[in-house]
């Protein structure tokens, strides 16, 4: 056996099993789902090939468009809300701008330690027509039939959920940023203070350039996580009322597991992947620009 053949044999033996496992649990389901996205299949019989009909139907469905809009709003809150605010909180704690910073660190991180389902039920209990806040509002406004109208508005119903998402996930970003801030040598900050740098200059000229990578990494997580958000919203509203708070993952779940449209559900799942990859690619483009600017 010559050395090239030996190498090939060694690679096959060493890498082969991992490739087989990876292919069977990752590649095969993705390819199967991708193929299924071009069929009509209820789970029984032979799938019927229908080309891109599932995709055209999806784009024409108002319920899908509401889901898409809601997902984009969640991406917006995650990328432009949770990440900057998480960073700001981490910076305040890192620079010890408040007393009892360990306490605040714990309090801000606390929500993420609770199950999403528990959080959903908790907020439901507060804002439901039988909830505490609603009852208080009825007393304050002297209106026994008062309910929060925002939940019944097509354009606004998602906003209370965005608030919960913001509250729930910001802590995790704060902890990630805080851990990375602690990696920055204190000497750098001390040196900049001695050079007369103001706080905002320290933040924007010294700290942020060193945090670019981690900011964009968290943004990738935020986008991917936002597009597949399901548990919290499903437990809070189930996508209702009138599908106003539905997101694409809930739309996919209903079509696949409630109406048994496996082909259509697969097409929707592929759409989530495409959207996720598209947004992450855009983000990488922006990231490279920033890197060039700071380098």
């Amino acid at each position: 056996m010559n050395s090239l053949a030996e190498k090939r044999f060694a690679y096959t033996i060493l890498v082969g099993p991992a490739v087989v496992v990876y292919a069977s649990v990752i590649l095969f389901p993705i390819l199967f789902s991708f193929t299924l996205g071009f069929t009509r299949w209820s789970g029984f019989g032979t799938p019927e090939w229908i080309g891109i009909q599932n995709y055209t139907r999806m784009l024409a469905d108002p319920a899908f468009r509401i889901g898409l809009r809601n997902n984009m709003l969640i991406v917006g809150v995650s990328v432009f809300g949770q990440i900057p605010f998480g960073f700001l909180l981490a910076y305040i704690i890192y620079r010890k701008m408040v007393g009892a910073h360990s306490f605040f660190e714990t309090v801000i991180f606390l929500p993420i330690t609770v199950s999403a389902i528990v959080v959903a039920k908790l907020w439901n209990q507060i804002f439901s027509p039988a909830g505490v806040i609603t009852q208080l509002m009825r007393i304050v406004r002297d209106d026994p039939r008062y309910v929060f109208a925002v939940f019944e508005n097509r354009d606004l119903a998602i906003f209370p959920i965005l608030g919960v998402i913001f509250w729930y996930y910001t802590g995790i970003y704060m902890v990630i940023f805080l851990a990375n801030l602690h990696k920055i040598s204190p000497d750098v900050i001390e040196a900049s203070i001695m050079d007369g740098a103001k706080e905002h200059q320290i933040l924007f000229r010294v700290i942020l350039p060193q945090m670019t990578n981690i900011v964009f990494t968290t943004a990738v997580f935020a986008i991917a996580g936002s597009l597949k958000s399901f548990d919290l919203i499903f437990a809070m509203t189930g996508g209702g009322p009138a599908r106003y708070t539905e997101v694409i993952a809930i739309y996919m779940y209903f079509n696949t597991f409630r109406y048994y449209n496996y082909g259509y559900g697969s097409a929707v799942s592929m759409m989530i992947v495409v959207l996720s990859l598209g947004l992450i690619t855009m983000l990488l483009g922006v990231s490279r620009r920033f890197e060039r600017r700071y380098s």
């Binding site: 439901s128 027509p129 209702g240 009322p241």
Partner: peptide, 15 residues
């Protein structure tokens, strides 16, 4: 005519 439970479409099954 406000005959239903207030916020009937927000009320979870059981309320």
């Amino acid at each position: 005519e406000n005959m239903f439970t207030p916020g009937v479409n927000q009320a979870e099954y059981g309320q």
